[in-house]
């Protein structure tokens, strides 16, 4: 479905409409230094700035009220900086509830599914782009159509299957499901990279008599490290934030992740705004940190996964 887009931009004849060249060019020069041009540019920056503020404002407000107590939330203006920041809100929610357990669970499930997904997806992509077999395009198609399937259409059978396997309320149900549902997007991200990756090194290794497994593990995987990193960070964001499967498959507190855990936790603290704010901040900090350091990879992964594939 998205293949056409990649081939979009071949250089070809520029459109030729010689419309009164000189005159217009003169106009352009005048306008680009003129008053109207500056006003226009100012409006553009204003528009872009307003959008940026809209995107970031709620988070700033969240951070501020995570450092307040209820009295300050209710009585001060929303953007008043608390004179005496209540950092203890963070300490309290971390130590009182099960937040630290949820956090650990999120880390474990996310890490195991990311590793499993990236390895399995690399194997599939390797087999599809490097090896010769008849059904390869069918298999690729199956993975790609998997992207369009709503998870709600799979939820009841998955619940029932995991029940009969004794995997309900078991971390394995989440790790397997996350892996399955992230394989399509991961293969999509890897696929573009594998296609443009030069094959000479792999071919030389075959000539030298290396086995396929050696080529895959010692030649191809190291060469695809950058794209694996991109795929891993995208996977990490999806798994870290996942809600429906945890909410459906997991019932005991020991196994809950941060998303469902904080949802329940906030229920108990419904009235303490500072605690709620601190809990939400704790849940988003890892993502914000990842973003701070890896924003280029995230941008690359999201645009590769949705546009190019």
């Amino acid at each position: 479905m998205r293949k056409e887009i990649v081939e979009n931009h071949e250089p070809a004849a520029p459109p030729t409409q010689p419309v009164k060249k000189k005159q217009v060019r003169k106009n352009e020069v005048r306008s680009s230094n003129g008053f109207g041009y500056k006003i226009g540019l100012a409006l553009i920056y204003l528009l872009l700035g307003v959008v940026a503020v809209f995107q970031i404002f709620p988070l700033v407000w969240l951070f501020l009220f995570s450092l307040k107590n209820n009295q300050e939330v209710f009585e001060l203006s929303p953007f008043a900086i608390p004179t005496n920041p209540k950092w203890e809100n963070y300490v309290n929610v971390w130590t009182e509830g099960n937040i630290s357990q949820y956090f650990l669970n999120s880390v474990l499930y996310t890490a195991s599914s990311v590793i499993l997904t990236v390895i399995l997806a690399s194997m599939v992509t390797f087999a599809i782009t490097r090896m010769k077999w008849r059904l390869s395009s069918l298999v690729l198609g199956l993975f790609m159509v998997g992207l369009m399937i709503p998870i709600h259409s799979t939820l009841i059978p998955l619940f029932s299957t995991f029940s009969s396997l004794g995997l309900i309320d078991h971390p394995l149900s989440l790790i397997l499901t996350y892996t399955a549902f992230n394989l399509p997007i991961t293969i999509m991200i890897l696929f573009g990279f594998y296609q443009v990756l030069p094959r000479e090194v792999e071919e030389a290794a075959i000539m030298d008599g290396a086995s396929i497994h050696r080529i895959f593990f010692q030649v191809t995987l190291p060469m695809t490290a950058p794209v694996m990193a991109t795929a891993a960070i995208i996977n990490m964001i999806y798994n870290w934030n996942e809600f429906v499967f945890v909410n459906t498959f997991i019932s005991s507190d020991n196994f809950k992740t941060l998303t469902v855990g904080i949802q329940n936790f906030i229920g108990q603290y419904m009235t303490d705004w500072g605690a709620i704010g601190a809990t939400l901040m704790i849940s988003i900090i890892p993502i914000l940190l990842a973003f701070l350091f890896l924003s280029n990879r995230i941008v690359e992964g999201i645009s590769a996964g949705s546009v190019k594939g």
């Binding site: 194997m123 090896m131 998955l158 397997l176 399955a180 396929i212």
Partner: peptide, 29 residues
């Protein structure tokens, strides 16, 4: 590069998860 056994080995785990956790469930639904 066209060794059937190797291809199976590389495709099977992912394909199994895809079929078992996405495609079979939608039919079951």
């Amino acid at each position: 590069m066209s060794n059937k056994g190797v291809i199976m080995l590389y495709i099977f785990p992912a394909l199994f998860l895809l079929l078992a956790l996405i495609y079979i469930p939608i039919v079951q639904t």
